[in-house]
């Protein structure tokens, strides 16, 4: 029974409660870093590392942290881990550090991480929270890789191009379309991000058997501040 529950916590984040496609949170980094598989994977792994660490620490501390100041406490813990990841990447993978740029420090305000801290880690044990972090992280990374693949293949005609964190310098990528037609470079740019995100989400809606789970709009259940909003003071809830 216990085993089964743990496995379902782990798989929840990947499909049933995929943070990006089902809960619709963490949209900014998703759109910004899915231009290629390499940056998408890098962002996904960085965010996953922060998510797992912060989930573990917050679930271990949630009995000590006073309820009133929990959001600032969570943010401090998350910001600490983001700084660690930032410094590690700057030292060991400088190419990824410069490719992610501004979006690396912005992991702090990624709704997925604060949202999981508030909704899961502050209510559950250390092991469950770690599993939830891993599951959600895999779900996030997987979505970024799928979107990165679509945008890269349509935009440049090649797949998996990049330096691969310094492991394969100047790898030109596997040609998919580039022999027949020129790439639609709009797909790697800003509008392409919105287009591909919309199409991937529509595909998920199409494939989802249980239509009742589909979110028709943005509401409070995906918002990171759901616990911070006191008695319907929230703008999204008011609508």
């Amino acid at each position: 029974m216990e085993e089964k529950k743990r496995i379902s916590i782990l798989t929840n984040g990947i499909i049933k409660e995929n943070p990006v496609l089902v809960l619709v949170i963490g949209t900014c980094p998703t759109l910004a870093t899915s231009g290629s598989v390499e940056t998408g994977l890098g962002m996904g792994l960085a965010a996953t590392a922060v998510l797992i660490c912060s989930n573990i620490v917050i679930s271990a501390l949630h009995n000590i942290i006073p309820d009133k100041v929990r959001i600032p406490c969570f943010i401090t813990v998350i910001a600490g881990f983001v700084t660690i990841v930032q410094m590690l990447l700057q030292a060991f993978v400088p190419s990824l550090y410069s490719a992610l740029g501004l979006y690396l420090p912005l992991i702090v305000v990624n709704c997925i991480i604060l949202g999981r801290a508030e909704m899961f880690a502050s209510k559950n044990g250390v092991v469950d929270s770690a599993l939830d972090g891993i599951g959600m992280g895999i779900g996030f990374t997987l979505t970024l890789v799928i979107m990165g693949t679509l945008r890269e293949v349509l935009g440049n005609g090649v797949w998996l191009a990049g330096d691969w964190f310094g492991l394969a310098k100047g790898f030109k990528g596997i040609p998919i379309f580039s022999r027949f037609i020129p790439g639609m470079s709009i797909m790697t740019m800003v509008p392409g991000g919105f287009f591909v995100y919309a199409i991937v989400m529509a595909a998920v809606h199409y494939l989802t058997k249980d239509k009742s789970k589909i979110r028709n709009d943005f509401g409070c259940d995906g918002c990171a501040n759901i616990g911070a909003c006191t008695d319907g003071d929230c703008a999204a809830q008011k609508q």
């Binding site: 619709v24 709009i186 740019m189 800003v190 509008p191 392409g192 991000g193 919105f194 287009f195 995100y197 919309a198 199409i199 989400m201 529509a202 595909a203 809606h205 199409y206 589909i214 979110r215 028709n216 709009d217 943005f218």
Partner: peptide, 23 residues
């Protein structure tokens, strides 16, 4: 609107066209 695009996806498509014009 096609059923699969109702809700969030159509908003994203709108944003895509808007950002296309801002380009």
């Amino acid at each position: 609107i096609p059923e699969s695009f109702r809700g969030v996806p159509i908003i994203l498509i709108t944003a895509a066209i808007l950002s296309l014009s801002f380009m």
